[in-house]
Write a protein that binds this DNA or RNA. Structure first.
Lengths: 157, 157
DNA sequence: GCTTTCCATTTGTATATGCAATAATATTCC
DNA sequence: GGAATATTATTGCATATACAAATGGAAAGC
């Protein structure tokens, strides 16, 4: 009788994180390749789109919806501010930092990337297969839908 | 008649990458939380496990299996070398850099993380749901299985 | 109204990631 | 065998990411 599979074997063969991380890298490279001509990284696109969609929004709320650490946002948004894709607005409500919103240039840029994004999305659907794409959307209905308001996936649970 | 959905709406609601990236962050935080006591990041675990499993292996081959850029590996492996989890070996075959292999300490460390990894894996399965976990494994059979040899997902064509 | 507590953001530090260009070695082709 | 080509690794540069600690403003308790 052989002993239970070695832990190293098990991780190598079963670890879900390893697969998700690799999938992330593969897909990111697909979208990045399409978006490169626009000077926009795929990761930035996600954030700019959320800001465009969710209107003036605070960093903390962006972080909740995308599961991003506030400190990450401080730095990533700085680049987008410098590039003029987003801007801070004064709302006179809360002195703890200002919400951000999309700029005219930011919106114009997003309106340009449509065809490229669609190409990447199509390649991704092919890569994931019908079942895969559907599942990713299903997962969205659960808890990783950035478009959905409400509680994020606060690890603690 | 309303026009076709705005591209911003479409990306916000449909973009597969946005979901995969968020999923990556969520899951990485789950595994990182479990592994923190061992001084090992989840991302490092993936690589060390592959090295332990795939024996003496060149950076380029690690990169193929995990879809990681060689330059990324140069730097990430340096940390693991310093920590003594892996080591370079002389093979006298090819002068372009040396293959790496797991060390005794590295293997010992991996043998310690079993219960923590399983906890994270279980939480992840719950998070993904049965269908999700199954799908991620199916995807593995396709092309993102790091344990499988062969061609990586070379973006190009 | 003042203190305590809470909340949003930033800074310091460390790791992860990729592209472009370079260095160094291997291989191939006359 | 030497030039042209291909392969592997590294370096420079830029972005992405998170934890811990510090900062500064808001809210609550009294």
């Amino acid at each position: 009788m052989k002993k239970d599979k070695d832990i190293i074997d098990r991780i190598a063969h079963e670890c879900l994180l390893m697969r998700v991380r690799k999938l992330d890298r593969v897909l990111t490279s697909i979208y990045d390749a399409e978006l490169r001509p626009f000077g926009l990284k795929a990761s930035q696109t996600n954030v700019v789109v959320l800001i465009a969609k969710a209107g003036p929004i605070r960093r903390i709320e962006i972080g909740r919806r995308l599961h991003l650490d506030p400190s990450t946002l401080t730095r990533n948004l700085k680049i987008m501010l410098i590039n003029g894709w987003i801007q801070e607005i004064a709302d006179g409500e809360d002195g703890r930092g200002l919400p951000v919103q999309i700029t005219v240039q930011g919106r114009a840029l997003l309106n340009q990337i449509g065809p490229s994004w669609r190409k990447a999305q199509t390649r991704t659907e092919k890569f994931l297969g019908a079942a895969g794409a559907t599942l990713m959307r299903k997962l969205a209905e659960n808890s990783i839908d950035p478009a959905r308001e409400g509680r994020p996936n606060r690890g603690s649970g």
